Computed example of a mutant assay.
Amino acid sequence: MRNKENMWFDNAIGCEKIKFMFNNELSINSVQVIDLIIEGNCNVILKLKCLDMPDFIPKKWKEKQASAISLVLKFTDVSNLSIHGLLPGLTLTPSIVSGTQVSEIFIDTGQARLHCTSRWLFIEDLSPYFGD
C-alpha cells in the first residue's frame, strides 16, 4: 500500500500512466540503466529496466510473464547535468524528485555518478520487459 509521502512520479508529466497501470505504485529501488541519451535541446533521456515488479500489473503482462518494466524518463529544459563514469548496465537505486518547478535525478554507485536538474520530467514510456 502506498504511503502518504510524495512518490517520485507525483509531479511528472504522464504520471497518470503509473496511476492507471500499476495502481499508483512503481518502485525504482532496483533499476538497471539501459541507455542514457543527451539531446541537443537540453534534454536527457534515461531508459531503465525496473526489476521490482509492482503487485498490480496489467493482466496481459501477467499472462505473458513480464519479468520487469521498461521505463523511459525524459528530463527537459535541463539546467544542470553532471555525468561521471558509465551508467548503462549498472543496477542501482536512483533518487528522483518531480517537483512543480524543478525535477531532479541523482545516482551515485561509486562506479558512476549522474546528477541532472531540469524544469520538467516526462514519463515517456512504460512497457513490459520479457527476458532476463
Rank of each mutant, 00 (worst) to 15 (best):
N43V: 09
N29P: 02
K19H: 06
G40A: 05
L46P: 11
V33G: 02
S27Y: 12
M21F: 15
N23R: 08
S30D: 07
N23F: 11
L46H: 09
I34R: 01
L46F: 08
I28G: 00
I45T: 13
I37K: 15
L36P: 02
V44T: 02
K47M: 09
K17V: 00
E16N: 11
F20W: 09
N29Y: 08
S30C: 07
E16S: 13
N23V: 01
V33D: 04
M21S: 09
S30Q: 11
E25A: 02
N43A: 14
L46V: 09
S27M: 05
I18L: 09
N29A: 03
N23P: 01
K47E: 15
F22L: 05
K47N: 13
L26Y: 05
I34L: 14
D35F: 02
I18D: 10
I38Y: 03
K17P: 00
I45G: 00
G40V: 01
V31M: 06
D35L: 03
C15G: 02
Q32L: 13
F22M: 08
N41Q: 10
N24R: 12
N43E: 13
N41R: 12
E39Y: 11
E39R: 13
L46A: 03
K17D: 10
S30A: 10
S27L: 04
N23Y: 10
D35P: 00
I38F: 09
E16K: 13
I34K: 06
C42M: 13
M21T: 04
N23H: 12
C15H: 12
N41F: 14
I37S: 14
F20Q: 06
L26H: 04
C15Q: 09
N24W: 07
K17Q: 14
V31I: 15
C42I: 02
K47P: 01
S27K: 04
Q32C: 15
C42Q: 12
N24S: 14
E39V: 00
M21Y: 15
Q32W: 10
L36D: 03
V31H: 06
E25N: 03
V31C: 10
D35G: 04
K47L: 07
E25S: 07
V31K: 00
D35K: 14
I38D: 03
N23I: 01
I45P: 01
Q32E: 15
D35N: 15
C42R: 11
C42A: 13
I28Y: 07
E25R: 03
D35E: 13
E25C: 06
N43I: 10
N41K: 13
K19T: 09
L26I: 01
I37R: 15
I37L: 14
M21I: 06
V44E: 00
S30W: 06
C15N: 14
F22G: 01
K17R: 13
V44H: 00
N43L: 05
K17C: 01
I37T: 15
N24K: 10
N24Q: 11
I38A: 08
M21A: 11
I38K: 11
S30F: 08
